[in-house]
């Protein structure tokens, strides 16, 4: 796989505060690469250095084959950028923004088609200030797609959106990736990273504390899978013994919880269900608890990561 972004020992400090403390990674062609971590972890500083908006204090960067500062003109023509804090004039209409921004690029895509693709047709003539948070982000994605970019930067795209709008944006990002674009995004929602990203770098205090696919990160975590259910016909000793083969069993009347260390060949839940079915035991209210990226972050940093 070709690396579209190469970061080697990136360092950036604001006065005495070190925002990014020597991080290195690569982003490959066609992947969605995520940087996750709490506010102040250094995600935005990193992405802004890659966009050529900030000058790094140290390290070697290559984005689409150029240095982001020296080749900023190339980068601006060929990469799509969505920024955490940016705006359009309040009274600029959706179509006007696309028409204007299209004129900045040598070979822009057809913005009329983008309006349809991003579901903004009804909002075509709506001024920017009257758009909802989700609609504004759709418009920003559309603006980022105008140069027909190979690489798209998305910084905290869904922060401040309600869950429904967030899910709609996720679908949109997956659709954009299906067009063959490479996406580098930051988020502080672990669920978002888990859903979207092919690979995730977890940042904390300006360093990468883990970098892998979400499933590998979760798989390698020393945590437990847990399956709970209610038995309808009581618990026979034979069943209890068979369950104990799968993991530690806790009984509370009819309620049973089986837990087992993370990283089994087959998910615990499917083993439990096949066992119960094989034994002819009736059950209901089955629920499972599997470790998530949230748990990965917790175990790596010792802190919870809620926003």
């Amino acid at each position: 796989m070709d690396a579209i972004v190469q970061v080697n020992g990136l360092r950036k400090a604001y006065g005495a505060t070190v925002a990014v403390d020597g991080i290195s990674f690569e982003v490959c062609h066609g992947e969605i690469f995520g940087m996750v971590g709490p506010n102040g972890a250094g995600k935005t500083t990193t992405i802004e250095c890659l966009e050529g908006l900030r000058k790094p204090d140290g390290g070697r960067l290559s984005v689409l084959g150029v240095d982001p500062i020296l080749g900023s003109q190339v980068l601006r023509e060929r990469a799509g950028m969505q920024l955490q804090q940016s705006n359009l004039p309040d009274r600029m209409k959706v179509w006007e923004a696309l028409d204007l921004y299209a004129s900045f690029y040598p070979r822009p895509v057809d913005w009329q088609a983008l309006i349809a693709q991003l579901g903004l047709e009804e909002k075509r003539n709506t001024p920017f200030a009257k758009l909802s948070g989700g609609q504004k982000q759709r418009l920003f994605i559309a603006l980022a797609l105008l140069p027909d970019p190979q690489l798209i930067f998305l910084d905290e795209l869904t922060t401040g959106l309600d869950p429904q709008a967030r899910r709609a944006i996720w679908d949109l990002i997956l659709a954009v990736r299906a067009l063959g674009k490479t996406i580098l995004l930051t988020t502080h929602f672990m669920e978002e990273a888990e859903r979207l990203c092919d690979r995730v770098a977890i940042l904390d205090h300006g360093r990468i504390v883990a970098l892998d696919t979400p499933s590998a990160l979760i798989h390698n975590l020393a945590a437990e899978e847990r399956v709970s259910f209610t038995l309808l016909g009581g618990v026979s000793p034979a069943l209890q013994q068979a369950l104990a083969q799968l993991g530690s069993v806790e009984m509370n009347g009819d309620q049973v919880t089986v837990s087992s260390p993370n990283g089994r060949a087959r998910p615990l839940v499917s083993e439990v269900v096949s066992l119960l079915t094989a034994q002819g035991a009736a059950f209901r209210d089955l629920s499972t608890r599997q470790p998530s990226l949230e748990d990965v972050f917790l175990s790596l940093t010792g802190r919870a990561m809620r926003d």
Partner: peptide, 13 residues
């Protein structure tokens, strides 16, 4: 102040 120039800055303009 409103980040309108910031958005323009990401383009070749």
């Amino acid at each position: 102040e409103n980040g309108i120039l910031r958005r323009l800055r990401t383009t070749p303009v």
